[in-house]
């Protein structure tokens, strides 16, 4: 059971990281990055690192995402092909 959870989470991490790399729309990329951070936070909570998980959820997935979204709003949303 635990192994299955780990395997699903690792697959999700790789899938979201690849999706961040592929996304042309920067808002989509930033939101996918937030999803990547939250998945990582779940992994850490599951593996016995609750302190790191709390900080990653608040800062890595929360504050960083908002800062990126502000930057996208002040620049250009589409990545040039």
């Amino acid at each position: 059971m635990s192994d299955l959870f780990d395997a699903v989470m690792l697959a999700l991490l790789l899938a979201t990281a690849l999706a961040v790399a592929r996304a042309r729309d920067l808002v989509a990329a930033v939101v996918l990055f937030s999803m990547y951070g939250l998945t990582l936070c779940l992994v850490w909570q599951h593996r016995g690192a609750p302190d790191v998980a709390i900080t990653e959820a608040a800062v890595g997935a929360g504050v960083t995402t908002v800062l990126f979204l502000i930057a996208v709003a002040r620049t250009r949303r589409e990545e040039r092909r």
Partner: peptide
């Protein structure tokens, strides 16, 4: 329990950002 200054600071920061929005 899990927690401490850093984690609380991160959460306060996220709260400020959400309220600021």
């Amino acid at each position: 329990s899990p927690g401490g200054g850093f984690q609380a600071g991160a959460l306060f920061g996220a709260l400020f950002v959400a309220l600021g929005l």
